Simulated assay, not measured.
Amino acid sequence: MDSVLKVEYKMNINKSKMRIMVCSRIKSGDAEGIRLGNETLKVVKQFCYLGSKITDDDGSREDIKCRLAVARKAFLKKRNLLTSSLDLSVRKSFLKVFVWSVAMYGSETWTINSLDQKRIEAFEVWCCRRMLKIRWVDHIINKEVLNRIGEKRNLWHNLTRRGDWLAGHVLRHQGITNLVLEGSVEGKNHRGRPRDEYTEQIQKDVGCSMFLEMKELAQDRVAWRAARNQSVLKTKTTVLIQ
């Protein structure tokens, strides 16, 4: 590995910072013997890259938990401002600037299942309760909290819209990001229920039943934006009915 990096790519690697991570369900142990010079590189199960937590299961759950924890900390830092006597509309604007921007960092690439969605929605209600100074002993349901603050799950809607925007942009252009999105992995599916896929998540958001249908829709910016907005509107209607 040392000769390949230096001769072919002319790269100098910092051995103390270099880590190896294998994203696979099958733990073969082949990565344990990778050496750089005279040192064996350390194999890790997760690491932080550009503020996002990447894990060896190639999922988004740990990154979502990490982002929500950091956003919760950001809320507590601005607690005096967000729970002050300022007008509620002003405090909601501060919430989106100081807290939601932290929570949604890198969310365009998340693959979110129902459990992760509940976790994200719970965080939004957590923020609303503290802004309104509602204690858990008051026994006020989440629907009433959202009515008092005048919100309708906007954090989840904004997160979905960001993911749809990125997918449409990638599908309209050719490059390595498009190759990653459309590429396939060799091998067979493992036994058990298959995991949620990123492309299937976007297909559901824009109302497409097949990937080719979604790709053709993405070529038209206006049609893609309309499908995306219709999906958000449908989700809001479902929340109101519930």
Rank of each mutant, 00 (worst) to 15 (best):
S231H: 11
C208V: 08
T83I: 03
Q46H: 11
N229S: 12
S52L: 15
R35K: 14
F98A: 01
A227P: 10
E216R: 15
L88F: 00
A218F: 04
V125C: 14
Y105R: 06
V232W: 08
K188N: 09
E39I: 14
T55P: 05
V99F: 03
I141E: 04
K204D: 15
D87M: 03
E39S: 14
V145Q: 05
K73Y: 11
H139T: 11
L81K: 04
L217A: 04
Q201I: 08
G150H: 07
S209P: 07
R148Y: 02
G29E: 06
L166S: 02
L233H: 00
Y9F: 15
A218L: 00
G192P: 06
L166H: 10
M21P: 02
K53N: 09
N142K: 06
F123N: 06
V180M: 01
L132G: 04
N113G: 15
A167E: 00
L155A: 10
F47E: 11
G106Y: 14
E124I: 12
G59Q: 05
K152T: 15
R191N: 03
V170W: 02
Q242T: 13
I34V: 14
N189I: 12
C128W: 06
S24K: 09
L146K: 06
G51R: 05
R153S: 14
K6R: 15
K143D: 09
N142A: 02
I20K: 03
E144C: 05
T160Q: 09
K152W: 08
K27W: 02
Y9E: 07
D57E: 07
R148W: 12
G106V: 12
E144D: 15
D57M: 01
L88P: 01
P194V: 12
E213L: 04
L115Y: 12
K204N: 15
Q117E: 15
F123C: 12
G29W: 13
V4M: 11
R130N: 15
K96H: 03
S85L: 03
I112K: 05
R228H: 07
V99R: 01
I34D: 06
L166R: 11
E216I: 14
G51Q: 00
I34F: 06
K73F: 10
A122M: 08
L132D: 04
G150Q: 12
K133H: 06
N147H: 01
L36H: 01
G175V: 02
L50T: 10
M18W: 03
E151I: 13
R193Q: 06
I134K: 01
L233D: 09
I112P: 03
D164P: 00
L217E: 05
A167F: 13
R79M: 12
Y49Q: 11
S107Q: 09
C66E: 00
R19I: 15
R119D: 01
T160V: 14
D57Q: 02
S52N: 12
E144W: 00
S3E: 08
C128T: 00
K234F: 04
I64A: 01
L41A: 06
Y198D: 08
R191G: 11
I202N: 10
E124D: 15
Q242D: 13
